[in-house]
Design a protein around this nucleic acid. Structure first.
Lengths: 353, 353
DNA sequence: CTGAAAGCGCTTACAG
DNA sequence: CTGAAAGCGCTTACAG
């Protein structure tokens, strides 16, 4: 049997309470006593039973996820993952979701302040790149609230961790695939984004541009289209470009306007462009299946949510953030390796952890 | 607060023991009593605290992982993942690893029988496609031992679940990428496998062949090379083909002979072939980084291991296998989305579950 | 068929 | 600075 606190108490010749104090680095133990206990811990190879500890603590962690509202399907999938995790009751964690208008720094900052006031132990938020947000995050941290950015980072804040992909690398990946798929085909490429106010979009763009500049003798990237992740605007913008640049070779959609993108391409009679988009959602899945989209870069929303929870709990527990090393992978999907949709959340899932 | 067994006992006017009997569908409760308890459960919206239940059970699950020995780097990474999970102590599970010679049906069957005799509650094994193995698996099942196949399936057995990727789809994915990367380039393609005695290899080959037959006006696939996942043999086989077929356009390496493959290509002065390999391991990672390999299809060994444990535990617990729906994703890596190697296990990892 | 009591491994007031 | 006792939510013999 694995040694328990009883074993180490007996072995060290002290009481359970003292063992507990040493184990949890609580004050009020003489150095000699502490040493005895530590020796016993070492000798017996003790490892704490976290589940039992949580049970005894009876503690519950109120966590808040702040997610943009609106019809962005990736965000809706993310929210569904959060709710699903909550249903399954991540042990001793109670999770709530707060929606805010997308790309709205003031609203986000206000939501963060409110969550802190409401006594959140930890907050996960999709960041907007603005000073008000940085300040709100840092205020939360000062109050001792754990904070992670989700999907879109804000490295200039003091957030504990970023749960999302390396978006510069994602942009480079898109660029590399675009270059290989196009081969010798001539023509410029267009980029459809949501807004340069969020880091994930601006970072993807810079990664993509860097690769395009290197490809062959350089491929021209047209001025970026900002569709605010709104399908209607995205469709209009793309349609205009299709008409304006008949020699267009490809489109990189790095935001969430994909329903509009696909609609515009369908309306234009499916010109044979190379199309690479982000996030496996109903519109991009349909695009892959119909052949109108060549590849989809993806981040696993479920992984990100569970990673955020682990990091927030570790921080709230004052445990060493071993989980902070977690990396979210940049998935590549083509038609052939498309995973089946998750009936619960509609997002793409793999076997979890 | 969430309701506990105490609450439902009080509400139903019975003892804890009776509540427990109903909760766990144990016999020896009158229908009326059962109904009262069930009504209380319903009324209060009770959900069991699994961690507390496990603690009380004090039960420990001996699980055995049977993994091929030898220098196959994917298998070594898989084993490292198993050992790491064990270190982290998946709650109340004790895991042991048994190594067997690769592609050896008799040895595998014997190892399964031994694990059953030793009292395993569950077994996960990389299957070899042979009747002896099917019989050994079915014997284990009859003894009430939970069984999952890992990485390579054996659907003709009664195994509870397969923890691995859809290998036909993986082969199709490789074929599709190969076709796109080659574009109009002429020439046949070669396939390097380990052995057709394992399902994962034979399934990948069939998927790849199907896509190649459809590509353009059909691309010729040369006779498959079986290198037994041995780098020396693989290198010799590939070198011979390179000399024999100077017009070769690409190589699909669907097994684990990649160190030999890369060595052969280096020795041949890096002919500009399209190379697609499986599993992100040191040799394939190096190949991607040096540009000699174009893409690597991957399965997350950590996911597979943790999925196997969840399924085995659920089965051993007699719980409904909600986990059985877990799917392992087919990852695509190119140079740009290469994740950093895991310092612990050497395998590619993402944020877990 | 039903219940009272002890215990799983840990933590938490409360005494001393 | 240290310890004895009760309790977290559940399960398990043992009585009756």
């Amino acid at each position: 049997m694995r040694p328990t606190v009883h074993d180490i108490a007996a072995s060290a010749g002290v009481s359970l309470a003292t063992v507990d104090r040493v184990l949890n680095a609580r004050p009020g133990v003489r150095a000699v006593t502490r040493a005895k206990v530590e020796a016993a811990i070492e000798r017996l190879g003790y490892v704490r039973d976290v589940a039992a500890a949580n049970l005894a603590k009876g503690r519950i962690y109120p966590l808040v996820f702040i997610i943009p509202q609106g019809e962005n399907p990736f965000m809706r999938g993310l929210e569904a993952e959060v709710r699903q995790v909550d249903r399954v009751t991540f042990d001793r964690t109670s999770i709530s979701v707060v929606n805010v208008p997308p790309f709205d720094a003031m609203a986000l900052a206000a939501a963060i302040d409110t969550a802190v006031e409401d006594g959140a132990a930890g907050i996960a938020a999709v960041a907007v790149d603005a000073p008000e947000v940085v300040e709100a995050i840092d205020r939360a941290l000062e109050q001792g609230v754990a904070f992670v950015t989700l999907v879109s980072d804000l490295a200039s804040s003091k957030r504990d961790h970023f749960c999302g992909v390396d978006n510069v690398a994602a942009g480079r990946t898109a660029g590399s695939l675009m270059a290989r798929f196009l081969g010798d085909r001539e023509g410029p490429v267009a980029v459809l984004a949501g807004s340069m106010l969020v880091r994930d979009h601006s970072e993807r763009l810079s990664g993509f541009r860097a690769v395009m500049a290197d490809a062959g003798r350089g491929r021209h990237v047209l001025d970026v289209l900002e569709g605010q992740d709104d399908p209607v605007r995205a469709r209009a913008l793309v349609s205009r470009y299709l008409a304006k640049f008949p020699g267009l070779a490809g489109i990189y959609s790095l935001g969430a306007g994909n329903a509009g993108l696909v609609a515009a391409l369908e309306a234009a009679g499916r010109p044979g462009l190379c199309v690479i988009a982000h996030e496996l959602t109903p519109p991009t899945r349909a695009g892959l299946e119909s052949g109108i989209v060549d590849a989809v870069l993806h981040q696993d929303a479920g992984h990100e949510v569970r990673s955020a929870i682990r990091v927030l709990r570790a921080k709230a527990d004052g445990v060493k953030p071993v989980a902070a090393q977690e990396r979210i992978r940049i998935d590549i999907f083509i038609r052939e390796n498309l995973p089946p949709p998750d009936p619960e959340t509609g997002t793409a899932r793999a076997g979890e952890g």
